[in-house]
Nucleic acid binder design. Sequence first.
RNA 1: CGGGGUGUAGCGCAGCUUGGUAGCGCGUUUGACUGGGGGUCAAAAGGUCGUGGGUUCAAAUCCCGCCACCCCGACCA
Length: 627
Amino acid sequence: MSSDADTTIQSDTQLGRCGLDHTRAERPGRGVIHTWGSTLIPTTREAPSDAESPSHILLSRAGYIRKLGSGIYDYLPLAWRTLRRISQIVREEMDAAGASELNLPVLLPIELYAGTRRDADYGDLLFKVTDRKGAVAALGPTHEEPITELVKGSINSYKQLPINLYQIQTKFRDEARPRSGLLRCREFIMKDAYSFHTALEGAGGLNETYDKMYAAYTNVFRRCGLDFTAVEAESGPIGGSASHEFMVNAPSGEDTILKCPVSGYAANVEKCEIGDRGLHTLDAEPTGELAEVHTPNLPGIDEVGKFMKVKPDRMLKTIVFAVTRHDGSRHWAIAVVRGDHDVNEGKVKIAVREMTGDANATVSLADEKAARAAGFAIGYVSPKVINSVKGTLLIIDHDAAQGGFWASGADKPDHHVKHFNWKREVGPILADLRYVKVGDARNAMAGDPSPRATGSRLETARGIEVGHIFKLGTKYSQAMGLSVLDAHQQSRPVIMGCYGIGVSRTMAASVEQNHDADGIVWPPAIAPYHVLITVLKPDAPEHREAARTIADRLASSGMDVLIDDRDERPGVKFKDADLIGLPVRLTIGDKALAEGAVEFKARRVPGKGEIVPLSDTVAKCRAAMSG
RNA sequence: CGGGGUGUAGCGCAGCUUGGUAGCGCGUUUGACUGGGGGUCAAAAGGUCGUGGGUUCAAAUCCCGCCACCCCGACCA
C-alpha cells in the first residue's frame, strides 16, 4: 500500500510553546486513514530493561514512547494521537463548563515566586534554569503565580468575575526519583485551570465552579472510558481548604484509597476520617508493675516488639512535633498512636489548632537534634514526657487511649517499659483539656469503622491519581496583591480555585487499568485509531483494494483507520495488533474475501474473530466503539 | 538525600574473577524458500566496550576520579 493511499489530508500543527494545541484541516466527521508503513510504530519483542510497570513496558514495546533521559520521554505518533484525544475530551468538557483556554509561558522568572515563597516550599522539585545574564527562571510545575499576575493586571472589578482559565501544556518537576515510565516523569503534559471569585457561596462563587469542575472531571474520565473513583483529599503544600482527587482504579497504583461500601464515602489515606471507635478508658487500672527493659540497637517498633515479646498493637508509638503559633511562639506537641498504626500529620495539625485556638499554627515533624535538646529521647519517648517538658501538647489517638497492657518508650535512650498505665504514668494532667486531647491522629486502614455509615467497615483499593481539584482560597491573591472592588466599592481579595488533570499520566493509567498478557486494550475514545485493518497479502491487488474500500467507508463514518500494509508474516502482524491495542482488528485474507467478507475481532474479547460480510463491517465496527 | 546495582551493536544479554583478534539472541539489509499467531536457509552491515586519567609491551577486563541510568527507602501539586 503506497502512501498515496491517504485520501485525507491531515494538517496537525503544534501551536504555542510546549502546548498541545492543534487544528485539524480535515473534513468534519470524517476519520483519517493512515498506513503502518508510512508512520512510525517501532514495536519490539522485548522491553527496555528499566521498564517494570505494565504501562511502561507496553507503551515502550508497542512503539508509543521512548525514553530520552530519566523521567523524559518521546511521544511517538501513536502516543501523540492518544494524548490529543484525551486533550480534546478535556478541552470539550472544560469549554462546556465555561472555562477559557489560554497558554502561559513555561519559563517563569523566579521573581514571580517572591510573594508566595513557593520556590522554597517546592524546594528542589522546582526545575530552574539560568540565562546568559545569570537570571534564574523556573520551568513551570503549575501556574498559580503567572495566572494570578495576569488576572491582577487585567481584572479590576467584581463584574469581571467569576472567570475560569485553563491551559494544556508541558510541565516540569525535578522529581527526586522518576519512575514507572509516564506515571512519574520530570516532564509531563498537564491541564491546569484556575478560577477567580469574589465569594465562596452563591452564584458565581468558588463552590459553584468547584462543583462544575467536579462534574466536568467526572465527564472527562467517564468519556475516556476509565474506571475511576473520586476521593476526598488533603490539599497538600499547594495550600487551600478542600480538594478531591480523581483516581484511576488499578491494582498497580501507587496510592491507597479507602472506601465505605455502604455510604460511598471515599478518601485518600491522608484525609480519610475514621468512624466512632468507642469510649476511651484512660482511667483503667494498671496491669502490673512498671518494668523497664533494656532494648539497645533496635531500629523499629517491630524489632522492639519482638525483643520484648509484645505485639505492635499493644505498644504506644509517640511522635514529637514542633508547633509554631501565628505569633511566632514555638512549643512541642506529641502524638500517640498504637504501634501498628501510622501517625497522620494533617490530623495532628487539626488537633493542635483546635487545642490552641490558633487556626494558623503550623505543625511539622520535630527536628531530631532540637527535640533531643529539649528533653525528648527520640525513639524512646513516652507520653509522660509532657510532665517534664512544660507546655507540650499531648494528642492521643482513640485506639491508644485505652486501658490494658501497654509497652512504651522509657524516656531514656535504649530503654522501653512494660505495663505502662495512662493514669499512673501521666498523672493528673491527663484531665487538663488545655494540654491533652483524645482524638483521631492516625491514618485510616482497611477494617476501620466507616465515618459515614454505622456498622460499615472501610475497604482499601489502589489507584493512580489523574485529576485533582482544590479550593485555594486567598493564598495566592493575598500574597500577590490580587483584589477587586465589590459592589460596595470595598477592596476584596479574590478567592481562587485550581484544577489539574495529568494528561500524559492519564494515558499511562489507562494502560495500567486496561491491558492483558498480549498488550494494550484501549478504551475506544482514547485509542490512537479506532480500527486496524490487517492485510495478510499486501501484494495482492484484491486484498489492497478490499482494505481501501473498507477503510474509506469507516473513515466516512467518522472512524480513524490504520492499515497494516507491511510485508510481514501474519503472526508478526497479529502480535503487533494485540500489542498496540486498537479496539477493532479487521483481517483481510483469502478465505473470508472469497465470500465477500472480512474477519472481525474486538481487542477486548478473547478468542477468535468472526466472519462479517463487507456490507456489515461499518455497522459492526461502530457498535464496537460504544461497547 | 541514605542504601544497593548497572553502563559492551537499535533492544535484551555474555565476556571482566585469571589483561592478549569483541561475542550471542532478537531486530536490520540482500537472496531463496515460505505464507492465518513473532518462520527456514544462506550471506551481510552495525560497537572510540559511558567518560577522563593511571598501571602495563598490551586494558571491555586491574586502579582512581567523574557522568549517566535503575531499584529500595525518604520524598511525592
